[in-house]
Amino acid sequence: EINATPKGWSCHWDRDHRRYFYVNEQSGESQWEFPDGEEEEEES
């Protein structure tokens, strides 16, 4: 699962919740759901 993350994302293990979470390396935002690989940036 770690190697399957889309480009620009990293996968980390949360010991407290015993599950993986994903970090967007560009924005620093994290989420529980597996990233779909589409950038959802809304910068103007």
Rank of each mutant, 00 (worst) to 15 (best):
H12R: 08
Y20R: 07
K7T: 04
G8N: 05
G37Q: 10
G28D: 01
V23C: 01
H17K: 15
F34Q: 13
D36E: 09
R15W: 06
F21S: 08
W32E: 07
H17G: 06
S27K: 03
I2R: 12
D14W: 00
R15I: 15
E43D: 12
Y22N: 10
E41D: 06
E41W: 08
S30M: 14
S30T: 14
F34A: 11
N24D: 05
A4V: 09
E29N: 04
G28H: 02
E41Q: 14
E42R: 13
W13L: 04
N3A: 08
T5D: 04
K7S: 07
G28R: 04
K7D: 09
V23L: 12
E39Y: 07
E29L: 09
P35H: 05
E43L: 10
E42I: 04
E43G: 13
S30G: 12
E39K: 14
E42P: 13
E40S: 12
G8A: 01
V23R: 11
E41Y: 03
D36R: 12
W13V: 02
H12V: 08
D16C: 07
Y22I: 03
P35L: 01
F21D: 06
Q31A: 05
W9P: 03
W13T: 04
S27N: 04
R15M: 08
E41M: 11
S30H: 05
V23A: 05
E40L: 13
E38P: 14
S27T: 13
Q26V: 08
W9F: 08
R15P: 09
S10V: 08
S30V: 15
T5S: 01
A4P: 15
N24E: 05
R15L: 09
S10F: 04
W9G: 04
A4N: 15
R19S: 05
E40N: 11
S30R: 15
E42S: 13
R18T: 05
E29V: 09
D36V: 11
N3H: 09
E1G: 04
Q31K: 06
E43C: 15
E33T: 10
W9Q: 03
R15S: 13
Y22L: 02
D16L: 04
R19Q: 10
E42K: 13
P35V: 02
E29R: 11
G37W: 09
D14Q: 01
Q31D: 00
D14M: 01
E25D: 15
E29I: 11
D16N: 06
P35T: 01
Y20D: 02
A4L: 13
H17Y: 09
A4S: 06
S27M: 02
E43P: 14
R19P: 00
W9D: 01
N3V: 10
I2W: 06
E29C: 02
F34P: 14
C11G: 14
P35A: 04
S10H: 03
P35F: 00
E41C: 13
G37I: 07
Q31W: 02
F21T: 10
F34Y: 10
P6S: 04
W32N: 01
W32Q: 07
G37K: 07
H12T: 04
G8M: 02
E40A: 14
E41T: 12
S30A: 13
N24G: 02
S10P: 00
W32D: 05
D16W: 07
S44M: 03
Q26L: 09
E25T: 09
E40D: 09
Y20T: 06
D36A: 11
R15Y: 06
E42G: 15
N3Y: 11
I2L: 08
E42Q: 11
D14V: 01
D14Y: 00
Q31V: 09
D16R: 06
G28C: 02
W13D: 01
W32K: 07
N3D: 15
E41I: 09
R18N: 15
N24T: 02
W32L: 13
T5V: 14
N24W: 01
S27R: 04
R18W: 02
E41H: 10
H12S: 04
D36G: 14
D36I: 11
Y22G: 03
E25Q: 13
N3K: 15
W32T: 09
R19M: 08
D36P: 12
E33Y: 00
S10D: 04
R15K: 15
Y20C: 08
S27P: 00
R19L: 04
E39M: 10
E39W: 08
D14T: 01
F34K: 15
H17A: 14
E40P: 12
R15A: 11
D14C: 05
E25K: 15
P35K: 03
V23D: 03
P35Q: 03
E25S: 05
I2G: 06
F21G: 05
R18L: 13
A4K: 12
R19K: 11
W9K: 02
E33Q: 12
T5G: 05
K7V: 11
S10R: 07
Y22W: 13
E39H: 13
G8V: 01
Q31N: 01
W32Y: 09
E43K: 13
Y22E: 03
Y22K: 15
E42V: 12
E1M: 12
E33M: 05
T5K: 15
D16F: 05
D16K: 09
E1A: 09
S10K: 08
N3M: 15
S27A: 02
R19N: 03
N24I: 00
E33N: 13
Y20P: 09
E38G: 11
P35G: 02
Q26P: 00
H17F: 12
Q31G: 04
H12P: 00
I2P: 10
W32R: 05
E39F: 09
Q31R: 10
S44R: 13
G37P: 12
E38C: 11
F21Q: 07
E33H: 04
R18A: 13
R19E: 04
S44A: 08
E43V: 14
E29Q: 12
F34S: 06
H17E: 15
Q26S: 11
S44V: 15
Q26E: 06
F34G: 05
V23G: 02
E29W: 02
V23T: 15
G28P: 01
G28I: 00
E38Q: 14
S10Q: 08
E42M: 14
T5H: 03
K7A: 10
E33W: 04
W13E: 04
S10L: 05
Y22V: 01
Y22D: 03
S27L: 01
G37V: 12
V23F: 05
D16G: 07
N24P: 00
W32S: 07
F21R: 15
A4M: 13
E33G: 09
W9V: 02
T5M: 11
D16A: 07
R15D: 12
E29A: 11
P35I: 05
N24C: 07
D16E: 11
D36Y: 03
N3T: 05
A4R: 12
E41L: 10
E42H: 12
D14P: 00
N3G: 10
S30L: 12
S27W: 00
Q31H: 04
S27V: 00
Y22Q: 04
G28K: 08
F34T: 13
E33L: 04
H12L: 06
H12C: 06
N24V: 00
A4Q: 09
I2N: 10
E1R: 08
E1D: 09
S10M: 05
Q31C: 09
H12N: 06
E39C: 14
R18P: 02
G28S: 03
W13R: 01
E43S: 14
D36N: 07
Q31P: 00
D36S: 13
E39D: 09
R18G: 14
G28L: 05
Q26M: 07
S27Q: 02
S44G: 15
I2K: 00
D16M: 08
S30I: 14
Y22S: 05
E43M: 09
T5R: 05
F21V: 15
E40M: 09
P35D: 01
F34E: 10
E29K: 13
E29G: 07
E25W: 01
S44L: 08
F21C: 14
W9M: 02
G37C: 10
Y20E: 03
Y20N: 11
R18Q: 13
N24L: 00
K7Y: 04
P35E: 03
E38M: 14
Q31F: 04
